[in-house]
Design a protein around this nucleic acid. Sequence first.
DNA 1: CGGGACTTTGAGCTTTCTCAACGATGGTGG
DNA 2: CCACCATCGTTGAGAAAGCTCAAAGTCCCG
Lengths: 254, 254
Amino acid sequence: MRDVPFARRPITINPVNSPTSGQCEDCDARHVGLCDALSDEDIGFLARVAQRVVIPAGKTFIEEGDPASHFYDVNQGNVRVFKSLADGRRQVTGFMGVGDFLGLAVSAQYAFSAEAITDVNLCRFERAPLLQVFAEFPALERKLLDVATHEMVIAQEQMLLLGRKTAIERVTSFLMSWLERSEPFPVGASKPAAAKLSLPMSRTDLADYLGLTIETVSRSFSQLKRDGLIAFTDVHEVTLLKPQRVAALTAGDR
Amino acid sequence: MRDVPFARRPITINPVNSPTSGQCEDCDARHVGLCDALSDEDIGFLARVAQRVVIPAGKTFIEEGDPASHFYDVNQGNVRVFKSLADGRRQVTGFMGVGDFLGLAVSAQYAFSAEAITDVNLCRFERAPLLQVFAEFPALERKLLDVATHEMVIAQEQMLLLGRKTAIERVTSFLMSWLERSEPFPVGASKPAAAKLSLPMSRTDLADYLGLTIETVSRSFSQLKRDGLIAFTDVHEVTLLKPQRVAALTAGDR
DNA sequence: CGGGACTTTGAGCTTTCTCAACGATGGTGG
DNA sequence: CCACCATCGTTGAGAAAGCTCAAAGTCCCG
């Protein structure tokens, strides 16, 4: 399912948008991100202007420079957001998951591209109708400001990583932040034990996210393996054997 | 005036905050950024909760990790925003100027530090009162969302620079983006002639912004000088002799 | 079982960094 | 008013981290 190369599966659009909130009940993103700002009574007004969209793995659904006609909210799966240079160099600016909001743009064009890493379920919103809902529910706009602010904090952290950290620091920093995202609530456990993580993205994605080459990413992983800090069960599944020692290599903020 | 090293001049606070809009009339930031969202009639309600603050060059006025008690709006001068690692490595995440808004934070602590590059005039807002004004004037909150979104676009561009561009590309990219900021309205002139730019920040600031060392920044400038693309009248004043040829070196977006 | 895509490992190279010295500039005090 | 000193910026030479190129290994599917 994941990463079916050049899948020919078409984008699926579910046009059934009842004004009831029924369709949101079983959504993984119901209580995170934007949607969390609305009560069960109000969520229907947002759902009414939403289109459920399924994007097959590998598919580009936002193209840098294209008219910024839609907003997206991720319900399921993982997305890479990136910018490219004319000669093909690429910078992944973030990996988006459940509850993340995509497509914020001041200008009329998207400033970035977005591709499905895994098969992805999205809610797609047209610009104008969504802005109308915002006008009716200020809580949405406030939430969006929170989201944007939080993204800014993450972006600054990433600039620090890209501008000033070594390869090993970048890789371990990524592992720890990905761990945090995977386990929003690390219950108890002052001495965190081993943690298994799924890494849906390719080494290329990772390299382009960390400002490295795939070879350097691979060598960094190998070094961490040799040192007994991590172990791979699968290329896309890593276990942090010594999370604290991994964390110690991240060169965290002062 | 600029860069008085370790100035002992104290922070000046002007407590006179009349509820009239009078004090905003001659402010350089009146019609940019946040304040631009309010009419002359309404601006007084914002001014009422503002404190005018003067920060001497070199002074840190936001410290990473401190309680995020205030917001700031730059009225005059330049500010560097940065994050640091425990061992002193520093990443400047942005240079802020007139009309820029500072201090957005989701968490209770600032995620970054801010220092005055030149002497700086700020409007300082306490958290709670400002949020109240936001509640009364939704246009402010919307504007803030625009601002945050725009900052996100700039941050993504900077990640691309830090992760994927060469030294010369970083320096020329910086020059062109600084040029854009200095001349928000490049009237006419399809063939832009030479443009003189003020670079208030130090080479260290620049290096920490571009993810380079000061030596590499210096060498890049020297190369551009040798090639006849730029010329320095002063260390902090550069003239782009061939803006288009400089632009050609930036490896812009595809 | 074979082929293609992805990942890992190795060897040599390039860009940028580090260390060092020199030069310029501006503020201060004699 | 000028000389000195501290700070900042420039230039050079050698070192190193990470990149490029190459080849071998792995895994998933058909």
